[in-house]
Design a protein around this nucleic acid. Sequence first.
RNA 1: GCCCCGGUGGUGGAACGGCAGACACGGCGGAUUCAAAAUCCGCUGCUCGAAAGGGCGUGCGGGUUCAAGUCCCGCCCGGGGCACCA
Length: 937
Amino acid sequence: MLQRRFDEYLPRAEDQSIPLLPMTYDHRAIEAAWQQRWESDGLYRSVVDWDKPKHYALTMLPYPSGDLHIGHWYAMTPSDARARVMRMKGYNVLFPMGFDAFGLNAEVAAVQRGVHPAKWTWGNIERMRSQMKSMGAMFDWEREAISCDPAYYKWTEWLFKQMYEHDVAYRGEAMVNWSPTLQTVLANEQIIDGLDERTGQPVIQKMMEQWFFSITKYADELLEFEGIDWPDSIQAQQRNWIGRSEGARVDFTTEDGDTITVFTTRPDTLWGATFMVLAPEHPLVETLTADGQRTAVTDYCEAAARRTELERLEGEVDKTGVFTGGYAINPVNSQRVPVWVADYVLISYGTGAIMAVPAHDERDFEFARKFGLTVTPTIQPADADPLDGATMDEAYIGPGVVVNSGPIDGIAVTEAKGRANPSIAAAIDWLDQHGAGKESINYRVRDWLISRQRYWGSPIPMVHREDGTIEATADANLPVVLPEDVEFDGRSPLGRHEPFFAAVDSDGKPARRETDTLDTFMCSSWYWFRYLSPDFASGPFDPEEAAYWLPVDVYTGGAEHAVMHLLYARFFVKAMRDMGHFEETRAIMEAHGKDADGAFDEPFMLLRNQGQILGEERAGDRLVIDGESDGARLIASKLKVDGEAADFEGAVVGELMRRTENLLQVDTGETTVTVEVPPEAVVEIAHIPGGNDVNQLKQHLEVQRMSKSKGNVVNPDDLVDEYGADTVRAYLMFAFEWLKGGPWDNHNIIGCRRFIEDMWRIGTLDYSPKAPSDDADIGLRRRIHQSIQKVDSEMMAFKWNTAVAALMTLRNDMLDASRNEAVSVDVWNEGVETMIKLLAPISPHITEQLWRDRGNQSSIHLQAWPEADADAAREDTITMIVQVNGKVRDRIDVAADINATDAEAAAFASGKVSEWTRGNEIRKVIVREPKLVNIVI
RNA sequence: GCCCCGGUGGUGGAACGGCAGACACGGCGGAUUCAAAAUCCGCUGCUCGAAAGGGCGUGCGGGUUCAAGUCCCGCCCGGGGCACCA
């Protein structure tokens, strides 16, 4: 029988500092005591040791927003568990933590509360650091880096200066995104559908002089993912974002002699270019416009400027535009083509001007038909009547053969892009020979706009001299410190704070300091270098540390950073490499015999993105639905939430089980009905007054991100207090597919709490066998060693749910063994110790307590990771599947090493099989020893 | 429109092309209890059947294979990214 030995327990006299074992499993006492003890022992300090293999595990650093969120736990604790496994496997593991502390959010939040951003941020850091400690993670706090600390941003500034001196950073004028709400410019990556991704407010396009990083120089290298193991979706997103298109740049000449350069992916259709279109912001619009058209063009451009990007993208389905009155010459056939202005051409892509080929481009076709412009086909599809520009009713996009195009007539047009398409290759060659244009690659990605008209960020270490030139602040004067005695009124105070902006240049003349600050994404583009040596005073990182720890082996964090942080980080490493910042590190690596090739091309060798924890799913509403069935589902015409059966005649009444979009799964008590709620359905929701429709219903039922305003926040502190960090950690790993995430569910956590309590029972059981048997020993050892194999491989693959499941299965086996009392004490102990070790990365406190309580002096977290004994794990009998025509008809226990002949014989000996084969010719027998026999009749 | 990822019991989720539904929650039945909670034992995809056992089942339709949740083709649906991108 299981028996607890609560009353037998006494603290071990020889080591009073080990926390006392509580009488019962008391997670509060155990967790607090061990966290303190680990800290005082420096258990998680990581120090360079060239005699041991290193492992740099990194998880994205939090932004100090106030409180630690369950999402932080979800992201960080599996990362911690993985780092712990690597440590137990003998690696010297670095697992640091810090804070991404600058940024607009902190500034806005602090000012709203009437607190200084510095005070607000540092307060939050204190709070979150202590909350993080309650996770029991193995963070090495000695290496903490905080981006708003002058000791940190000195090097952010220094790196900016390096970029400037190496022509990677530059000041330039460009059309940029300006947020009137935030009173600052934003990077393209921070704009989604014309809205600022943080506040959801519209941004407008403005011509402004700003600081940029020329990330476009690295576009091609950033498209390469060779040698790194990153998720497909992140690679795809980055490739999409970079948006490489192969084609040509072609110069058209206006009648005034100006050049209009266009980019096209289809130079083979140049002979069909019957007009041109400029973006309203294009610099040549002004000069090209004929007097008679001036009013119309000016009005059009002004109207376009007033519209936000959002309206331009979403509002206009119909093409608009106006003729400038000007003409240009098509260089391939010297034809005179009219030049139009239209906002379907974007100033921010390509050259802001296009050649329009209405016959073979849908947008140009629509425009040409609307304004009565000439359509000239230059591609003839095979097996079709000749295309007629006057009568075509849509643009032809497919393959064929080139026509009406002089020198390239007759060449095949395929679906291939770039030079792989014979017609495009021929056109490019022709352009090249005639000096009319050249092969060109265009990227969608723009240079990274890094200046912000905000206060709470790293200062840009530049001064504007009286003569209008710009110079960098001398290294000796870094960091340029952000002043704290400022007043806030919605705009950045720096531009009005004379003690800050009054500077002197290198000649001693008065100068004005740059008052924009750096995008906070720059701070987080190099933070993993600072962790290596947060106090290092003569560079951003100590090459001695870097040589040992770099590169980062495993990086985990949210996929929302796909085209921001994760792209910038890659760019940064490449730029730092090209500026020579890793040369000393490389030399040290090589001196230690470590291969430095590729160590500085990419920041993170392996990347995994956890999913997101959403608010708890809303179900259980009582629904009354009237509608008609289309066979598969019920189409609702009227629907009432929390209504009564009598509300509609003949209605379906039931409980909401699940909602996806406008499809509801409704449990009527007898069956589950799928209900579709079309937009025109009449919807009544008791506590939402007024006219409701399917959108209110969605709102009402939405499973979504947790937020304070929605009141669906799961507070990790409360969970930890109630269940313990060990249980919460295990639950977060068990309840979700880690890479996917999902809605929070408060009910299932009890299963993990039971599991942890069972671990306690097993670990504290005073076991003695009643009837020891070798069979029992062999059986349990098999299960133990199979569990080691399973848990190890699942953890290495980030499959935390199945790793925990395997441990739960072992728990069940151990509980069975404790009841049967047939295994020897040695095997029982082997099971207990293996379980403690395998669980240690997931639930570090209870395992430490049990381990020490079993008389061990050293921490569980310093023990070697269990290695599976393949012989012990091997099954000697297995269940062989016998199929007839692929259907399972019998299961037979056979020796695991059975040969094909015996397996077949065993299968035919089965009575169940002969019932199915009787009277039939055996056509074929497939034997997959030792697992399966399939008899085909 | 293009790119990426998904769709499996009441729920979260398991399944090297080879026993679909591991593990857990919930549910049902039982034990214990004066009773409840906790705990323990059994059952739990749907369906026909008293049972033995059978049939059906991984979004839909085809295909490859002795064998398909898994591979291929074509759809539908959901999530994410890009998008008047020249």
